[in-house]
């Protein structure tokens, strides 16, 4: 199975966010909000790290 680095990181973010949202919060609303926040932070961090590495390279 071949997945790009970005695809693998997004899948990682998705699964980890679902589990973290369910396990770290108590109410359904908080779970959804925390899961979405975690996913946004994972993907945002991924893009920021990608641009940081691009800037270091150039």
């Amino acid at each position: 199975m071949q997945i790009s680095h970005f695809g693998a990181a997004v899948l990682y973010a998705l699964f980890a966010s679902i589990v973290m949202g369910i396990c770290f919060k108590t109410t359904t609303r908080e779970m959804i909000r925390y899961g979405a926040y975690s996913f946004a932070m994972f993907v945002g961090g991924l893009i920021a790290a990608g641009w940081a590495m691009w800037l270091l390279r150039h």
């Binding site: 899948l11 990682y12 998705l14 699964f15 679902i18 589990v19 369910i22 396990c23």
Partner: peptide, 9 residues
Amino acid sequence: LLMASIVSM
């Protein structure tokens, strides 16, 4: 949801 996420991963 937990089962689907963990088993898929």
